[in-house]
Design a protein around this nucleic acid. Structure first.
Lengths: 153, 153
DNA sequence: TCCTGATTATCCTAGTTAGAACTGTTTATG
DNA sequence: CATAAACAGTTCTAACTAGGATAATCAGGA
């Protein structure tokens, strides 16, 4: 067990992420959105729309899921799917007026809701944490790359 | 935007967790388990069983989900649900012989699979990362507590 | 041009998720 | 001792998840 000193780090990562989901999700659901829907609306806010592919990359929602999330947002009249001129494979997703209004009603309040918790951390502490996360992600992504590479050789 | 310097941290946390899920889950699925099932088996390994409540706490799987995960493991003959002497509400979950054998076949190889990625990090770096995660989790859990408290006052 | 290969989005399956409502059991209190 | 509160696990619903298969479209090379 002590031969794998990284296991506690992974466990802590999982706990940490769950704590975030609980904290953030709690507020998001109160305003009638799911975390995924909020993510899409927050990403589309202040843009003039983007393709599903780009939306998937920015929101961290996988392609298969995204279709369903977008379906529900269309049903609720918050977004629109439009054909992209010049590429008939692609769709451009944009906020409707209603969607833009939800964005404005929800995004800033959500940041304000999170604010007090993070006010306890200094700028230095925040950057240490961010650097730690980046480092951790980097080794894991590299590890995943290496393992996929092996499969193709 | 720059008024909320913690947003990049949260984004990085989400990315980091997803990278972990991809890296770890990729291997787990190859051996025919889901991440949740692996989590249960790894937690039960080398123990003499525990209640659903304790299992839920240790694996970070919520109780509602746990029922289904356990159902599938019972179907596959990897675990057993036994009545707990002295408390008829509670069930004790233990690995069957088949389950124990899966544990042995899968746990160490999984740690070995992850090893090379983490070998890049020094012990010092690992503890910095762990401390960062703990700090981040702490402020978020506290934030969640504060917000729930408000609801009751 | 034709054709192969890559890209875009959707569909499908099995499984997981949170949250809330519910049953049965235990414990504490009046 | 009765009963209210707390607790253990299951059930339910709507949604999300990865991964793989599919259909339509686009781009490059023979």
């Amino acid at each position: 067990m002590s031969q794998a000193p990284f296991l506690p780090v992974l466990r802590e990562l999982a706990c940490c992420y769950q704590a975030f989901e609980r904290l953030s999700g709690h507020h998001i659901r109160q305003v009638g959105l799911t975390p995924g829907q909020f993510d899409v609306i927050a990403t589309l806010g202040n843009t003039c729309g983007m393709s599903c592919r780009e939306l998937g990359e920015r929101t961290l929602i996988t392609k298969g899921t995204l279709t369903g999330v977008l379906d529900r947002l269309v049903e609720r009249g918050l977004i629109r799917r439009e054909t992209t001129p010049g590429d008939r494979r692609s769709l451009t997703v944009t906020l409707t007026d209603a969607g833009r209004s939800v964005f404005e009603d929800v995004f800033s309040p959500h940041v304000a809701y999170l604010e007090p918790a993070f006010a306890q951390l200094s700028a230095t502490e925040l950057s240490t944490i961010e650097a730690s996360l980046k480092q951790l992600r980097s080794v894991m992504e590299q590890g995943f790359g290496d393992c996929c590479e092996k499969l193709n050789n």
